[in-house]
Nucleic acid binder design. Structure first.
Lengths: 206, 206, 206, 206
DNA sequence: AATGAATGAGCATTCATTCAT
DNA sequence: CATGAATGAATGCTCATTCAT
């Protein structure tokens, strides 16, 4: 990394560069996007990009970190607030899906493109990802303690499924503007909590 | 012009080409993969590829069709067999996840890369996709008729969610060989059917 | 390295590429020359160069090896032939300087540009260079044994000086076409053998 | 326009810039060195270089002039002092080789890189070079007059050879710190004066 | 006197594609 | 059928240079 400035102005411009990269990577994929595309999105010339990034790869790394970081921060806020499990789940889903809709392309890039980073460059992402998953599992555990969730739940499986479902619906919402976000959130919550069966699961009838 | 050849041998080689392309696209992404990579995978020289494909884009199209087609065919088999909803769901999940594991890279390519095709080239895929979703919704409808599923279920949402969940766990299984597939299938079925709540949903009046 | 051909035609073309690179590197220096320049010299398009070279650096390496190799081979021929020292020296100087004149740009490139190769890439060159120096020292040692050269001569110094002088006059001959090569060779031989003093060095007068 | 500044301070800084450029050009070659490298060596920012140089090319020109100038000045001092030829030769060799060792990179740059300057820019260098060669030839002529050197010597050849030998050993001394400079100087003087033959040249009639 | 910021041109390299053999 | 050879366009990146502050 160069000697670089902690100027306010520089930081602002650099942030714009990250957002531009995020938007372009989200639309065309890492390999399908050119630095020319990113520069255009920012309104500068191609070569000038390198004032803000050391390389295209660095740009991807930073976009991913930026995307994942926002995830984690929101999740931390939700975790820290005392509230019943169902409210928390709703908050998580809302946070996840609304940030997708608000054109947080960085999240999509993290989900779809991070594997194009060489393993060494994913270290920070792995740490953030673990933190995120840990927070989610913790929330679920609280749900179990609360007796809202089944005692025998496989929390690893459940947490991953929630993430997978959110990513799927997040991407879908992004592509189909006619879908109603709040309805989707509610549907997700219902599915996760109650499943789809008509009858209550084998309730022990005494 | 390539209308000649309907030779068996040609078809066999061509199929190998599609599989090679599928494998390479799955591993590196459409834009990240080179025709050289595909040729290498097939054991032929780069220029020779063009005997089997008009272009890289055509290759992607064919891989996607191939991948989606196998989905649909399996689904058709499942639909046609008379059996209770729960068995069908299990069959669907098993079909989806096992074909991911068996390195059916084409499915992964369809899911992750099809959007890099220009809209015009996605016509056939859209048709197949609709067919697939229709079959799935039909199956769910049968589940409702059977009274296994709730009457007020949003079947569009449910069918999409199943697909999304399957794709997520399919990709995860591909990356993490320590995961047990049959356990994952069972977990998915449980989640979809029964959700995660401890108590039966409040709709039950004792 | 690619799978590559041992076709005659390919080898011929590849050789032409090495010569083109040699000529351009000699004229402009490694960093001052562009692959475009080399391609132009060869009469092909820039991108096509890479059919013959993996990289510009490889091109430099091959040019250097080619240049040094011709040195060594000529020197081996001279060493193997039984003849008095003075004839050998003349043969060495003639070989060195005439090959410079015959536009053997590769030798010049080796002398002036080889240090721009990363150390790892110079291994083969080092070996060839050692061989060359060893042969030269051997020749000088024979001259001492013959009693043509002084017993107390520092042969390392002498061999290096011969090389240095040859490279200097070789490059000068290349630039100044009015200089007479054979006169230069004779002058060099005289200087090396007899120095420039008028009187014989402190000859012991009995 | 930069005609202002004849400040002492400016001249000092400008000199530092020339030395920095010399050092970088010597290490990486003109085309291989970037203005960034030079700025770094000076401890300033890239853009600031242009306060001291109009262009990279100007920098090279100035470095070459600086390098050659110091040569000439030393040679003038040696020429002006009345002393026997052998002492003068020793002084010349010592001056040349010691200034190489003392990291007078500018000399090396002049020798290796001056040809990358467009012909027009080499005018001043040509003049200085002629002066240098003239002084050297003059010195040699004095040696002939003194009867130390042979009457029939080709002084042009001899002077060039001395320069070539010095440049060669200068560069070698720079790269190999284990070599002893004073031994090298003595060896050079011996070779130039006495050659390498064991017996006195046949011209001596007893 | 120095710097941050930007630019435009050039460069090495990759790659999809073509085609004669 | 398959390949060797070539191409043209694009791409990531570097760098000399400029200029407002």
């Amino acid at each position: 990394m160069k000697s670089h400035h902690t100027t306010d102005k520089f930081e602002t411009r650099r942030n714009k560069a990250i957002l531009a990269a995020a938007s372009v990577f989200a639309a065309k994929g890492y390999h399908g996007a050119s630095t020319q595309d990113i520069a255009e999105e920012m309104g500068i010339k191609q070569g000038s990009l390198y004032y803000y990034f050391d390389s295209k790869e660095t740009a991807l790394e930073e976009v991913c970190i930026y995307g994942l970081d926002s995830y984690v921060k929101r999740m931390e806020k939700i975790s820290s607030k005392v509230q019943p499990f169902e409210s928390r789940l709703l908050a998580i889903l809302t946070s996840h899906l609304s940030s997708y809709r608000e054109k947080n392309a960085a999240m999509k890039v993290h989900n779809d493109q991070r594997l194009y980073l060489p393993r060494e460059r994913r270290a920070k992402l792995k740490k953030l990802g673990s933190r995120y998953r840990a927070l989610l599992v913790e929330t679920l555990k609280a749900g179990v303690d609360e007796k809202t969730l089944r005692l025998d739940s496989d929390l690893q499986f459940l947490s991953q499924s929630i993430i997978g479902l959110c990513n799927f619906w997040g991407a879908t919402l992004l592509r189909d503007s006619k879908l109603d976000m709040y309805e989707t959130i509610q549907n997700c919550a219902d599915l996760i909590l109650e499943g789809s069966l008509a009858a209550p699961p084998k309730t022990i009838t005494p």
